[in-house]
């Protein structure tokens, strides 16, 4: 495990950063797309069931299948990382739409009414009142999306997209468990670090929760 890392530092670090990129970009894109859709689902109640059902259905499609089907939809090459980015973005959107909608719905009606009574309207209320209050719920959703992405990305090695999963296939073809183990450990470390960063970000955005916890 250590030997391989010593002998191939360039390979490993390249795969590591590819993995980071493939795991994080879809979640960021997914959140950007899911926010407006989630807002629609929470704001216009009748859209909630169809939107969340569709999202649930998309989430049902296995990720590997989605990686492979993407080229026939996008016209990309089968080995292109774009396939994975798009597929995982679809996945993240499917997961986060529901989370965002539920998070926004969790804002107490009293708080909402008070905000409206004080003169907040539309976008202002969404950005300054609803969204901050929904942060803890959305943070929890982001953690799930990111951590599962790290694991899903590694499956891309099966179809030859280079990232930490390449350590699995390399180790397997050379029959050296240590190389596979290195891949597993790095995946776990990456998931742990990203998870920690999201928790930290969530805390920074919700100082009022810490104030309560301290008491």
């Amino acid at each position: 495990m250590i030997n391989y890392l010593k002998n191939n530092p360039d390979n490993v670090s390249e795969w590591f950063f590819a993995h980071v990129w493939l795991s994080v970009v879809p979640v960021v894109l997914g959140l950007i797309i899911a926010l407006p859709i989630g807002w629609v689902a929470s704001h216009y109640r009748w859209t909630y069931p169809p939107i969340t059902n569709l999202a649930g259905l998309l989430y049902t499609v296995p990720s590997l299948a989605l990686f492979i089907i993407m080229p026939s939809i996008l016209g990309t090459k089968i080995l292109s990382p774009i396939n994975m980015v798009v597929a995982l973005t679809v996945y993240s959107v499917a997961l986060l739409v529901r989370v965002v909608a539920d998070g926004l719905n969790s804002v107490a009606p009293d708080v909402r009414a008070a905000a409206t009574a004080m003169g907040f309207t539309g976008l202002g209320r969404f950005l300054k009142v609803d969204l901050p209050i929904a942060v803890p719920v959305i943070t929890a959703g982001l953690r799930v999306a990111t951590v599962s992405n790290v694991s899903l990305v590694s499956i891309g090695a099966l179809i030859g997209v280079p990232q930490l999963g390449s350590l699995f296939t390399t180790g397997f073809s050379r029959y050296i468990p240590g190389i596979v183990l290195l891949g597993i450990v790095l995946c776990l470390v990456l998931a742990l670090v990203l998870d920690g960063l999201i928790i930290l970000g969530g805390r920074l955005l919700t100082p009022w929760q810490r104030a309560v916890a301290k008491r």
């Binding site: 799930v144 951590v147 599962s148 790290v150 694991s151 590694s154 499956i155 090695a157 099966l158 930490l164 999963g165 350590l167 699995f168 296939t169 180790g171 397997f172 029959y175 050296i176 468990p177 596979v180 183990l181 891949g183 597993i184 995946c187 776990l188 998931a191 742990l192 998870d195």
Partner: peptide
Amino acid sequence: ANALRALPTFGLLLYLVIG
């Protein structure tokens, strides 16, 4: 439960087979 979610299944499979 959280830690297991981060475990890459594909890697674990290959590791167990060759190990």
